[in-house]
Write a protein that binds this DNA or RNA. Structure first.
Length: 551
RNA sequence: GCGCCCGUAGCUCAGUUGGACAGAGCAGCGGUUUCCUAAACCGCAGGUCAGAGGUUCGAAUCCUCUCGGGCGUACCA
């Protein structure tokens, strides 16, 4: 990577200066950044500006000294030029031969380009969606599904051993309500007037399931005794789970494991978790309930773990779940959640502190909600008010690729306004197709020349146009971008990057002909296109989008 | 009231961790095709980065306050 090389060179040059008595200042890291505009070179450093006050020199004098020290690397063919600009920035222009070496590296790596060993195969879990099996997924869940999926892919690329998990809340009050709702609908199939409980589930899908159950052979069940309640609970859960899994399948999201809340109750892990918290002095009793000491542990607000009637709260069970995760050996657990769970997050972090887990064990990738805009009308999602759009309907209408792209292209912490009209009627201007089309154009050229094998040793010197060198520098940035996208939980950077790369490619394609009669030039340009193709392919793959050869 | 997120072009959003004259897509206007896929390219127009202070050599970015929007503040899950 070019930045690594430049960084090394800058550090070396700076350390030469440190012996100068006028400077005499050791600093750990010499910051290097990519220049914001072409006239400022490829990389620049503002170190002279920042450090001048610690020396007897002015910023400009210090910059001059630094630039002099750097210029020995011109002869080493690292830079073509070193400049001082503005109040004391030092800008370097990379030598073409160095830029060519970056492309050579990409050709050598091929499809492995962008992968790294940063993660050292450490086990990481990404838990996401985890929607209650009380109904089908909404578009909000869809956003989370795509974010979690891409985040998991990013961590895999960085060399972590990633496991995607879905936590099923298949126990508790909501599930009981679900069973009662299903029972009521079931009785209605037999002409009964049984009504759905207050706060029960009204959705049509419950009627469908009831209808299926009513058609099954055997005597109809007339009493809602414990056995019946249990049976309807399991029927509801298993059938709704299937709907959820089907939706996720359509979205192209696959999980490695489905964790059932029920198992935590049955195995005694909930009780054990409470004991563990007690042993660490993390709980107290008040008004007949057991509370977690959240506030003492940097949390927002204490909350109930065990109710007055002895039943554990959702939080209690969730803590048991996280103890389970820890026991399974994950060094890092990333929970993808909506913005409405902040209190729970704060409690969970407090619980982890009480139990003495490392600070970086648990992390939350938080995202804002989705609203749908259609015919100038904005619909906010609200399950309670029965106002929500199903993920399934959106997928039906727009297809996996478009839905995934729109869900991931926005910064997670920003509210996502999903413009259906745009996604629908203006699909030809959709950025997704723009990116895919770039890949298609390259594939078409390679089809024409019969996909030649391009050795990394190919002579790249004919690549001397500004656009060509710029494209290579773009490609070189890919691994850095991936790290940032993963560690900052910002998968949208990948979408953004792919769009920028596609734009640079389309402009290049229109200005220069790749296939010409000068063989050396053609071969070099094909090598460049191979590089672009590799990176576009990797980007689309990470986002879970299809990679068309033709459009 | 308190806590978290957000406020950037007509609309939807980026902004490389504090850098040098603020960027894209869409919408608007005007151009480009005997040539590797025009689902493309080029140009024009469009912004007091919500507002006011502060820190800094340097702020859309960090701090404080104000205004505006979303979410939360359950012995629900």
């Amino acid at each position: 990577m070019l930045k690594t090389l430049v960084k090394r060179s800058f550090a070396k040059a700076w350390h030469k200066l440190e012996d100068d008595e006028r400077i005499n200042k050791r600093i750990a890291v010499v910051e290097v950044e990519r220049s914001s505009r072409p006239e400022f070179g490829d990389f620049s450093s503002g170190i002279a500006l920042a450090e001048a006050k610690n020396t007897t020199l002015s910023a400009h004098e210090l910059a001059t000294e630094f630039a002099n020290a750097l210029s020995t690397d011109i002869t080493a063919e690292l830079y073509s030029q070193v400049e001082i600009a503005g109040p004391g920035f030092v800008n370097v222009f990379l030598a073409p031969s160095l830029i060519h070496s970056a492309l050579r590296e990409i050709l050598e790596m091929g499809d492995r380009f962008g992968y790294s060993t940063t993660g050292q195969e450490k086990p990481v879990q990404v838990e996401f969606v985890s929607s209650n099996p009380t109904g089908p997924l909404t578009v909000g869940h869809g956003r989370q599904a795509v974010l979690g999926d891409v985040l998991a892919s990013l961590y895999t690329t960085l060399g972590y051993k990633v496991s995607r998990e879905y936590y099923f809340n298949d126990e508790g009050h909501q599930i009981d309500l679900l069973a009662q709702s299903l029972w009521a609908r079931y009785r209605q199939e037999f002409g009964d007037k049984t009504s759905i409980p207050e706060q029960g589930y009204q959705g049509e899908y419950i009627v469908d399931i009831a209808r299926q159950l009513a058609k099954e052979p055997g005597p109809s069940v007339a009493d809602f005794d414990e056995q019946t309640a249990n049976r309807f609970k399991q029927e509801a859960i298993s059938r709704i789970s299937l709907m959820i899994k089907n939706d996720l399948d359509l979205l192209g999201v696959k999980f490695d494991s489905w964790f059932s809340e029920q198992t935590l109750h049955h195995s005694g892990e909930v009780t054990a978790a409470l004991e563990a918290l007690k042993a660490c002095g993390g709980v107290y009793e008040r008004e007949g309930a057991i509370w977690l000491k959240t506030e003492e542990n940097q949390g927002v607000k204490d909350s109930v773990l065990v109710r007055g009637d002895g039943r554990p709260t959702y939080l209690m069970v969730d803590i048991a779940y996280h103890i389970n995760k820890h026991r399974r050996g994950f060094v890092h657990v990333i929970n993808v959640q909506g913005a409405d769970h902040q209190v729970e997050q704060s409690c969970m972090r407090a619980a982890m502190r009480i139990l003495g887990y490392p600070e970086d064990f648990l992390d939350y990738a938080v995202h804002q909600f989705v609203s749908i805009r259609e015919h100038e009308k904005i619909t906010r999602m609200s399950t309670r008010a029965g106002k929500f759009i199903l993920l399934n309907d959106l997928l039906d209408e727009l297809g996996r690729n478009v839905v995934r792209y729109f869900m991931v292209a926005r910064k997670p912490t920003s509210h996502l306004e999903f413009d259906i009209d745009l996604a629908r009627t203006q699909s030809l201007d959709n950025p997704l197709y723009y990116i895919q089309y770039a890949h298609t154009r390259i594939a078409s050229i390679f089809r024409r020349v019969g996909s030649p094998a391009l050795s990394p040793q190919v002579d790249l010197r004919p690549l001397e146009k500004r656009e060509e060198l710029d494209l290579i520098k773009q490609l070189d940035r890919f691994p850095e971008m991936l790290q940032q996208a993963a560690f900052e939980f910002s998968p949208h950077l990948v979408a953004d990057y792919a769009l920028t790369l596609a734009r640079a490619f389309h402009a290049y394609y229109d200005s220069y002909r790749v296939l010409g009669d000068q063989e050396r030039l053609t071969t070099a340009r094909l090598a460049l296109l191979r590089g672009v193709q590799i990176v576009l392919h990797r980007s689309l793959q990470l986002l879970g989008l299809s990679i068309p050869e033709e459009m």
